[in-house]
């Protein structure tokens, strides 16, 4: 057990020291999140939106950051090793694919928590924003972490076989999910009725509904959200394992020579 925890920690250690020495990576947690935040909140205040919509945007941005950082950290931690040609050294080590995924997901989670803390301070100072219901807020963020982890497992699985293409996918498909899940709007008001049954079965849609319920803009369905989130993790883990073995059989996992 301790050995496994140490290997999981290895990924957090790598991520922390890479972040510390890399200006571009630092910008990813210090500058870009604030630019995204202010772009949307300035636009909303310019339009003279109600405080409740501004709160929805701020909460949505926090939830989305959780998905974004978990998914992206899981794939970038892997693709970084590929780019530096050290991937073979990682994969010939005793770390299991589960430990690798959990380790990088924890790094992503810590980055997300750091950014969310910055958001909480910045929005409190600028807009007087306060979290009205902490238990719901924490519960929603936990679900976003599980969803981000599922997405990261899928992206990482693709990375085992296709390597850097997964990095592009790591950027694209969270954006698609975000668009479908109605982070900053109501899906019922935007999408045609025939698409809604599918969209409402996305755990991300249900998780954003949970956040929106904090400002009275949606009705949460926590049991369904919990069930679908677990289903996603299970399916994603199976996919990840399938892709790992497929890559290992095809000789695409890593090259030594």
């Amino acid at each position: 057990m301790m050995d496994s925890l140490t290997r999981i920690y290895s990924q957090v250690y790598k991520s922390f020291h890479t972040l510390r020495r890399n200006t571009f990576r630092l910008a990813d947690v210090l500058i870009w999140p604030l630019i995204f935040l202010f772009t949307l909140t300035f636009f909303a205040t310019y339009l003279g939106s109600d405080a409740v919509y501004l709160q929805m945007i701020i909460l949505g941005m926090m939830g989305w950051r959780m998905i974004y950082f978990l998914n992206l950290e899981m794939v970038s931690s892997f693709v970084d090793e590929y780019w530096s040609k050290s991937l073979a050294h990682l994969l010939i080590s005793p770390i299991s694919r589960f430990e690798l995924a959990v380790g990088s997901a924890i790094s992503g989670f810590l980055k997300a928590v750091f950014v969310i803390c910055i958001y909480l301070v910045a929005t409190h100072v600028l807009y007087g924003f306060n979290v009205s219901d902490w238990p719901t807020f924490v519960l929603a963020l936990s679900f976003f972490a599980v969803i981000g982890f599922s997405m990261g497992l899928v992206t990482l699985g693709i990375g085992y076989y296709w390597k850097e293409e997964s990095f592009n996918l790591g950027f694209i498909w969270p954006d698609v999910i975000v668009l479908l899940s109605g982070v900053y709007f109501s899906v019922d008001a935007v999408y045609p009725a025939w698409v809604l049954p599918a969209i409402n079965l996305l755990p991300s849609t249900l998780a954003f509904n949970l956040l929106k319920s904090m400002v009275g803009l949606a009705v949460p369905d926590i049991p369904l959200l919990a069930m679908l989130s677990l289903l996603w993790v299970l399916l994603a883990y199976l996919f990840n394992g399938y892709m790992y073995e497929k890559a290992r059989r095809a000789g695409k996992l890593a090259r030594l020579g």
Binding site: T6, Y9, T18, I95
Partner: peptide, 28 residues
């Protein structure tokens, strides 16, 4: 088992000591 390869690279953005600590964690 461990491997030294003339074709693989070293991980970016870590000092020699940090990179070795990373592998020390991977191998417990």
């Amino acid at each position: 088992l461990n491997v030294v390869s003339g074709f693989t690279g070293v991980i970016y953005s870590l000092s020699v000591e940090e990179a070795l600590m990373y592998y020390a964690l991977l191998y417990n």
